[in-house]
């Protein structure tokens, strides 16, 4: 029960939020720049990797997940794993047709 309450009223100072924003803009620039290079298949995975980094920043800081307890983190992980399975297992069909 206590794990969700841990530090749930944490205040994130403005400078830190602005720093995160700057990083997000830099990553946006990076992903646009990378898209101009000719990388073949790496293209998709590279862009997704950058998107995941951006998502991580938003979740960890803007959404305060860094300061939440284990419960919410675990449940978020459960959700993402579920989605990954739904998409991944469909390829047992598509990749072998």
């Amino acid at each position: 029960m206590a794990d969700i309450e841990k530090d749930s009223h944490h205040i994130i100072r403005y400078p830190k939020l602005v720093m995160v924003w700057v990083f997000l803009l830099l990553l946006t620039g990076l992903t646009v720049w990378v898209s101009r290079l000719d990388l073949g298949v790496l293209h998709v995975w590279g862009s997704l990797a950058i998107a995941v980094m951006k998502a991580f920043l938003v979740i960890a800081f803007f959404m305060h997940m860094r300061y939440e307890g284990r419960l919410l983190r675990g449940l978020l992980l459960l959700t993402l794993v579920t989605l990954a399975i739904f998409i991944g297992f469909t390829f047992f069909d598509l990749s072998y047709r």
């Binding site: 399975i85 297992f89 047992f92 069909d93 598509l94 990749s95 072998y96 047709r97």
Partner: peptide
């Protein structure tokens, strides 16, 4: 139970690999 959905589709033309796994 969330990992077995394609067993409804064995005759729909999914891949043999999918039939095996599901």
């Amino acid at each position: 139970g969330s990992l077995v959905w394609a067993h409804h589709m064995f005759t729909s033309g999914i891949s043999d690999m999918a039939v095996l796994v599901f």
